[in-house]
Simulated assay, not measured.
Amino acid sequence: MSTSSRILTRFLITLVFALGGAGFGVMQQTSPIIAGKVEEVRSLDKPQQFRSMAKLVAGREVAGNDSSNWREQQADFYGTILETCESAEMKSRALERVRALNPDLKDSDVDIRVSQSKGSSIFNILATGTDPKYTRIFLDALLDEFIAFRQSIREAAQGRVLQQFLQEVVTKQKDMETSEAALEKVRAKVDTPSVKAELERLVTRLNSLRNQRDDLRLKIKPLEAADATKAPLQSQLEATESEIQGIETDLKRYESDLAELRTLTEKHRLNTMAYEKLFHEVEKIQVVFNSASDYVAIQERATPASEHVAVLQDPFTGAASGGVKLGGVAVSGIVIGGVIFGLAGAFIGLLLSLLLIRAPRPQAPAAL
């Protein structure tokens, strides 16, 4: 084979492998379209999509010192946040809020997706819509409605618990007020300066009469029945005893009132203690609810909505490919893939052509 034929054959082999490699590279870049695996790609017949991002931060403390089911509690708590943010109820609430605060805006469909950052308690809320302004406003409204919804749930739970205690507080307060009214009524009868002075006078008079009675009994005892002095002393003794009985009757009446006063005073003291104790319990419950063990707060509000265009990764470098999109695939990525695989094919073809087509060995001269 002549030298020119060998060169031409090698060139053809190299060209064939180069074209084959380029074709393979183009197929690699466009394979997502062929396989139908390109997601969220905007084609010419679909409207533009705009995205806005917001963030929530949540936390939950372990109840007491028991952390045996901590993971289950955390999973349930975080799962509730995810489902609630994506729920139709939250979207409906956000829609009503947008309509109320921005009546000039036209309604637009907004898709909400929530994801939790790995290894953290931060939740990323992604809103996707066709109107950038409406998408951002809708996402902010969703955040506000979610926080308001959680607050209403907390207040409702607090209200149910407090209602039971408040009913008991009202009952104890009525008992305290009733016993206080009865106490004041009895106290007005016996616990006054005039009554105290009267009691003191009666007691003093009673002691004096008892002494007189004892003296009269001593005088009458040695006297004979026929003694003329005995009859007047006997009459005086009977009068003294009668007066003593009257005073004792009065004192018994006052003693009954005093006993009632002591009873009502103790009853009022116990009722007051029960009321104050229950009232302090209600205050403690309010403090517990106000310093709840779990919380959810807005970390970042909605960002300005930007247009979303699918970004594919380069199969060689793993870097994102931008530029002009053809059915969701970057044209620059197709060109790069074709060039790289084409050069690789050309190199392989050149090596094969050098191995397969070799120049003939020069023959030694006959004289040698």
Rank of each mutant, 00 (worst) to 15 (best):
G159Q: 13
A157E: 15
L142W: 10
P132N: 10
T171D: 11
T135C: 03
P222A: 02
R213L: 09
E224G: 10
I147Y: 06
F146C: 06
A157C: 12
S194P: 00
A226M: 09
D140C: 01
T192K: 00
A188C: 01
A182K: 14
R213D: 15
M176N: 04
T128F: 05
Q116E: 15
M90S: 01
T130Y: 14
K219N: 10
A188L: 02
E184A: 11
A157L: 15
A182L: 15
R93D: 07
S208C: 02
G129T: 08
D104M: 11
A141N: 06
E89Y: 14
G159L: 08
R213P: 08
E198Y: 03
D215C: 07
A148R: 04
A100H: 07
A225R: 11
Y134E: 13
M90Y: 00
N207F: 02
E96H: 10
A226V: 10
A225C: 07
G159F: 10
A197V: 04
S108H: 05
G159S: 14
F146K: 03
A197D: 11
A100T: 05
T128V: 09
L162A: 15
V186E: 12
L143F: 01
L209D: 07
S152L: 09
I153E: 15
R187H: 09
V161H: 06
R113Y: 10
A226L: 11
T84S: 06
D215I: 15
S121G: 12
R99P: 03
K118R: 15
V169M: 08
R201S: 13
L199P: 06
A197M: 04
M90E: 02
T130L: 09
S121M: 07
E168Y: 05
S115F: 10
A127M: 04
I112N: 03
D104N: 14
P222S: 02
T204C: 00
D140A: 01
L202W: 09
V161L: 09
A157T: 15
D227E: 04
A156F: 07
E224I: 01
M176G: 00
L101M: 08
V170N: 08
P193F: 04
S120A: 03
S115C: 07
L143A: 04
R187E: 11
V186P: 03
E180D: 12
Q163W: 08
R201L: 09
F165S: 08
E198C: 00
N207W: 02
D104Q: 15
K106T: 15
F149I: 02
L183P: 01
T171R: 11
R97W: 05
T128P: 06
E184I: 10
L223Y: 01
V161C: 04
L139S: 06
N124F: 15
L143I: 03
I137A: 06
V195C: 12
K118Q: 13
E168M: 02
D131Q: 12
A141E: 03
Q151H: 08
L216W: 01
L209K: 02
E96N: 14
G119S: 06
S117I: 13
V170Q: 07
K118G: 12
A148L: 07
L162W: 09
F146I: 04
A226Q: 13
A157W: 14
L216Q: 03
G129H: 11
P193M: 06
G159Y: 11
L183A: 01
D214R: 12
I220D: 11
D140H: 01
E180C: 00
L101Y: 09
R187P: 02
